[in-house]
Design a protein around this nucleic acid. Structure first.
Length: 581
DNA sequence: ATCCCTTTGAAGGGG
DNA sequence: CCCCTTCAAAGGGAT
């Protein structure tokens, strides 16, 4: 470890990644210290971090490791600290047993450089060289092991015992998180059919062997830590790097398997067409081809935590709600996301972090900007959503789904956050916090329409969790969170549907009360709330995005009516939707 | 055939 | 530094 900075950082350590969780990254560190929640988080993270990392550290000298975004680094360092602590606390140490069930083995690849961008080794070679660590029982691509994410999915063969659980009872085959539904995070271009539809499929070194499998339940596997990642990355680099993007050395290995993130722009068969094309056009086409060549395949952005979560959960939601419309589903997912416990979210954040890291390594030169409309051929135009000022939101009640059955809150009276109410165009009218992407004062306070009735609306079922931050005044409360996971499903499940009314209540009842959250609330306000753990506080997050949340969220409707006690008022209710009444 | 919708998070750019 | 915009997934709906 590069220096753990010692103890100093314990607390902070936890935070680092937390940033993601926190809405603004504000403060809180201090507060959090005490909170057990933090610890939990820290633990989680620690768990996430693989020991290997520590090992790596030793090797850390290599810059490669550091290469990763500063953030990550900081994160690591911090995490390490936290990790260490956690380790002490938990196992006493290393993850003797995998923190997460899914974690089959620990890889301890040799970081030394192979992967480094500079490095030019062939993956295989590297792996071979490297530290053995545990290998996957079955035939896994050598590289695969490197990535600890989860093996489950891939393992065609037999999953490790602990993994068994994930195995689909029916088939007996280890199943991917959400079976059929989930598509690889990075869909491959049509041509690449062979690829595995695994959420993190693109990580898979070779077909069938996804590197980052996601478990159904959520990512239960410990994330390998940078180490593994690096290793995996290196392998990936060598194997998948798009030539153009790849530094010379990397180009060496081309499996030919496109990285999920890489999408060939509509390219599709144009090239072939061109071939076919008449001579006349040949010139033209040639030109085109060349251009295309120039144009690099479209490399997609790495998925963020929420996107990963969506991928994983979408199928469930669809099944539960029978909805198909993505917009509606996404709303639900958004709520569920907020409902997730910190731990759960942490998993996704961690995973996302890794993805970003990997992505960076794979495509060093890539910039999100590259994907902006027009920057690459594939993309057509940007969708600009300029919703006209006020209008947009208000009306927009996009609510197709019965599950969501809540009445769209179309009318003005409906409480909305400034962004929703006024729209982007009229930001002048927004309250300060909204402008800053913070919690809407008006909305919360209840000024005008903003005020909150919404909170009341039961929609909160899920929300409770969402606002955990608010809620939990006491650290202990945090612990309660776990429920959320279980709960989640409930919340959404509305199958009965459309007419849930009575049933809804039931669900509601089932739904986890907002246990955590409500209490604390705002006072602490965002600061405090979020603060405690920093990162995870969903509420903050939501708040940050004043946008939609405030506005009606039909979804919640699914369940119901509000459980929330008025107590919560201060909180942003972002999640709350209008009650059916 | 495209874009929109919807969600959260990340990143880039402008002021 | 703050804020805004765009994109990532996804699939029905709208244009």
């Amino acid at each position: 470890m590069p220096q753990l900075n010692g103890g100093g950082g314990d607390d902070l350590g936890a935070n680092d990644e937390m940033i993601s969780f926190k809405d603004e990254g504000e403060q809180e560190e201090k507060i959090s210290e005490n909170s057990s929640a933090e610890r939990d988080l820290a633990d989680v993270k620690s768990s996430l971090v693989n020991e290997s990392e520590t090992n790596q550290n030793s090797s850390s000298d290599s810059e490669a490791e550091r290469r990763p975004p500063p953030r990550s680094e900081s994160f690591r360092d911090k995490t390490r600290e936290s990790l260490e602590e956690a380790a002490k606390r938990q196992d006493g140490g290393l993850f003797k047993s995998p923190p997460y069930p899914g974690y089959p083995f620990i890889m301890i690849p040799d970081l030394t450089s192979p992967y480094l961008p500079n490095g030019s080794l062939s993956p295989t070679a590297r792996t071979s060289n490297k530290v053995p660590v545990v290998q996957h029982p079955h035939h896994v691509h050598p590289l695969t092991p490197l990535i600890t994410y989860s093996n489950e999915h891939f393992t065609p063969g037999n999953p490790p015992p602990h993994l068994q659980a994930d195995v689909d009872p029916k088939t007996g085959i280890p199943r991917p998180p959400h079976p059929p539904d989930i598509s690889p995070y990075y869909p491959l271009s049509p041509g690449t059919v062979g690829q595995i539809p695994h959420p993190l499929g693109w990580l898979v070194p070779q077909q069938g062997q996804p590197v980052y499998p996601i478990t159904t339940g959520g990512f239960r596997h410990p994330y390998p830590t940078a180490l593994t990642v690096n290793a995996s990355m290196s392998s990936l680099l060598s194997s998948r790097f798009p030539p153009h993007m790849v530094p010379p050395h990397h180009s060496l290995h081309t499996t030919g398997i496109p990285h999920p993130a890489i999408v060939t722009p509509n390219v599709k068969q144009e090239s072939s067409h061109s071939d076919i094309g008449s001579l006349n056009s040949s010139k033209h086409q040639d030109a085109k081809k060349e251009e295309e060549k120039k144009k690099q395949p479209h490399i997609k952005k790495p998925l963020n935590a929420f996107m990963l979560y969506m991928k994983e959960m979408r199928a469930k939601v669809v099944a539960e709600c029978t909805l198909k419309e993505s917009a509606a589903i996404n709303q639900i997912l958004g709520r569920r996301w907020h409902a997730l416990s910190r731990e759960e979210q942490a998993k996704y954040y961690e995973l996302a972090r890794k993805e970003r890291q990997l992505h960076m390594q794979l495509y060093p030169g890539w910039s999100a900007r590259d994907n902006y409309a027009g920057n690459y051929q594939g993309k057509k135009k940007k969708r600009k959503r300029e919703k006209q000022a006020g209008e947009g939101n208000e009306h927009r009640e996009y609510f197709p789904n019965p599950c969501l059955s809540l009445p769209p809150i179309t009318d003005l009276s409906a409480p909305k956050k400034c962004r929703a109410r006024f729209g982007l165009d009229q930001q002048n009218n927004w309250c300060g916090p909204c402008r800053r992407k913070k919690k809407c004062i008006r909305y919360i306070q209840g000024e005008g329409s903003c005020a909150s009735p919404p909170s009341s609306d039961g929609s909160l079922l899920e929300s409770p969790p969402s606002s955990p931050s608010m809620i939990s005044p006491s650290p202990s409360s945090k612990e309660s969170k776990p429920q959320t996971e279980q709960m989640q499903p409930l919340s959404l499940t509305m199958k009965p549907p459309p007419l849930l009314s009575s049933s809804q209540h039931q669900h509601l009842s089932m739904a986890p009360p907002p246990p955590l959250a409500l209490l604390d609330n705002s006072g602490a306000g965002k600061t405090s709330g979020s603060a405690h753990n920093g990162s995870l506080d969903p509420s903050d997050v939501s708040s940050s995005r004043s946008t939609g949340s405030a506005s009606s969220r039909p979804i919640s409707a699914c369940h119901s009516h509000s459980l929330l006690p008025s107590s919560a008022p201060t909180q942003p209710l972002s999640l709350v939707t209008k009650s059916i009444d």
